[in-house]
Nucleic acid binder design. Sequence first.
DNA 1: GTTCTAGAAC
DNA 2: GTTCTAGAAC
Length: 170
Amino acid sequence: MKDPKSIYKETENVVVIHDKYPKAKIHYLVLPRDEISSIFKLNKSHITLLKEFGSIFHTIMEDHKNNTLRAGFHAVPSMQRLHMHIISTDMNSECLKTKVHWNSFTTSFFIPYDDLLKTLEEDGVIQKISSDTHKSLLSQPLKCNQCEFTPKNMPQLKQHLLSHVNKNHL
DNA sequence: GTTCTAGAAC
DNA sequence: GTTCTAGAAC
């Protein structure tokens, strides 16, 4: 975040950086300038901030009209600082290597921005998930995010994802 | 998050 | 034999 090269966009309250290990062609992280350790620290006072996350997401979608982008949070974050992922659906990346990588973006381990905002507005808090739920979400069998295909392993999945890219270009 | 590696799968 | 996964160490 301190490295100017990694910064894609910034506003008064929010910074958007390139993910260091992008898991798709387009993969940004949206961070608040305020230090908030995780989604579990959020309450209703943060709704204004989250709405800024939403508007910056819409701006970024305008920048990438040819790609489908999704915005959301990991149910168990990997980094000790609140961050929202903005990621394209192609999931085509050298950095995408493991089943855990895949499932953390394609199962309900990925909490869409709209869902998180709604939960915060309704409950005023984001609940932690149990470690059993955590494990089961990340160990689900592989399934393509764009069709019903269920690959046997990661190399097969990555090969299969290329076929979707080619289809989109034809 | 990444790297390493034993043993399962092929 | 090689490929791949998954768990441990970091």
